[in-house]
Structure formats: structure tokens, C-alpha cells
Computed example of a mutant assay.
Amino acid sequence: MRSNLKIEGKALDGIDAKLVTLLNDNARMSIAELGRAVNMSAPSVNERLKRLEEAGVISGYTVTLDPEQIGYTLQAIVRMRQLPGKLKELEELIQSIPQFIECDRVTGEDCFYARLCLTDIHQLDEILNRVCEIAETNTSIVKSTPVKRRQVPLLLGGS
């Protein structure tokens, strides 16, 4: 790896930040479109994107689905505390159930906070029945999401 591909301190310059923001808004933008947006040539933009990927700043390009549009009418947040000796088993169970779309291992009384996308309340019951064999749960139904998952604020370096 070439040394000029390193991003010092993981902070981005203004052009890198603009490129990341544009791609976050529309990951399908072409290199040419990105170049026009930041007043740079396509090869220069391509080199910057390669540098950002190699540094691990950009780890992928994705599609965002609207769960409701594909039949998931209910979301729930589940806090879980494993029964003694069941931590690994609980983690594996969560990973095996595709309706768990996010899960964080946390400190405090609970060990996992997870988000589920569900077709209906009966599906929630089926999943919780499996989880309750190895963990205590506390479930909340999501009424709305004022802040959808978003990218972390960009740290700008230098100027």
C-alpha cells in the first residue's frame, strides 16, 4: 500500500467529506458526476475513493430498503439479558433470526439491544418465544423513528 493513501488521524479533508456525503445520499452516482460536483477530474475522484476504501473509511456501497414497502409493518426494540451461561447461545440465536436487523451488545443490566422488523404481532410472539428460552426480554413497539440510522458526523481535518 502506498503511503500517500493513508488518511491521517481518520479526519477527512473538505473534498473527501463532500464525496462521502454525495455517495451517502446516492451511492449510484457515477465517478463523472462526482467529479463535476467537486470540480475534479474523474481519475482524481477515482483515486480519492480508492484511498478512502483502502483506509477503511468507505467500507461498502448499499441499497436502503423501506421495510413497510416490502411487508414489514411492525418494528420492535428488544432488550435481552441472557440466562446464566447462555450468552454465546443467545448471540448465535439472534444472528440466526433474519428479522433481527440490528443488535448491539451493551453494558448495564441487559446484554443486548436489538431491532426487529416484523410482518405482524404474531411473528413477534414466535421470535420472543424462542428467545425467552435462554434470556429475559423487555420489548417496546416502535411508533415512529424521528431519526433514522444515519452516517456518523464527518470529522474534517486541516481545512
Rank of each mutant, 00 (worst) to 15 (best):
residue 42 A to N: 13
residue 7 I to L: 12
residue 42 A to G: 14
residue 73 T to P: 00
residue 78 V to G: 01
residue 80 M to C: 04
residue 35 G to C: 10
residue 71 G to S: 00
residue 8 E to K: 12
residue 117 C to D: 13
residue 140 S to K: 11
residue 90 L to T: 07
residue 66 D to L: 11
residue 1 M to C: 12
residue 99 Q to D: 07
residue 61 Y to K: 13
residue 5 L to I: 07
residue 121 I to R: 12
residue 61 Y to V: 05
residue 7 I to E: 05
residue 75 Q to M: 03
residue 45 V to S: 10
residue 41 S to F: 10
residue 79 R to D: 06
residue 15 I to N: 02
residue 38 V to H: 06
residue 126 E to W: 02
residue 151 Q to P: 09
residue 28 R to C: 02
residue 112 F to A: 04
residue 49 L to I: 15
residue 147 V to Q: 13
residue 91 E to Q: 14
residue 48 R to M: 03
residue 95 Q to A: 14
residue 139 T to V: 08
residue 124 L to D: 04
residue 142 V to T: 10
residue 73 T to F: 00
residue 54 E to G: 06
residue 155 L to D: 11
residue 13 D to K: 00
residue 58 I to N: 12
residue 49 L to D: 04
residue 30 S to C: 11
residue 127 I to D: 02
residue 81 R to I: 03
residue 141 I to F: 07
residue 73 T to S: 01
residue 75 Q to H: 03
residue 61 Y to C: 03
residue 90 L to I: 08
residue 132 C to V: 06
residue 75 Q to C: 00
residue 158 G to N: 05
residue 104 D to Y: 15
residue 2 R to Y: 09
residue 99 Q to M: 02
residue 132 C to E: 07
residue 54 E to T: 11
residue 102 E to P: 01
residue 130 R to D: 08
residue 53 E to S: 13
residue 26 N to L: 01
residue 144 S to N: 14
residue 36 R to E: 15
residue 40 M to E: 12
residue 138 N to F: 11
residue 96 S to V: 05
residue 8 E to S: 08
residue 63 V to G: 07
residue 41 S to R: 12
residue 70 I to V: 12
residue 39 N to I: 08
residue 135 A to L: 04
residue 92 E to C: 04
residue 9 G to S: 06
residue 118 L to Y: 06
residue 33 E to Y: 05
residue 66 D to E: 14
residue 148 K to G: 10
residue 16 D to N: 06
residue 132 C to L: 06
residue 158 G to K: 07
residue 156 L to V: 13
residue 95 Q to N: 13
residue 134 I to E: 00
residue 140 S to N: 09
residue 50 K to T: 14
residue 150 R to A: 14
residue 108 G to Q: 06
residue 92 E to T: 13
residue 107 T to W: 08
residue 159 S to P: 00
residue 141 I to Q: 00
residue 109 E to W: 14
residue 130 R to L: 06
residue 49 L to F: 08
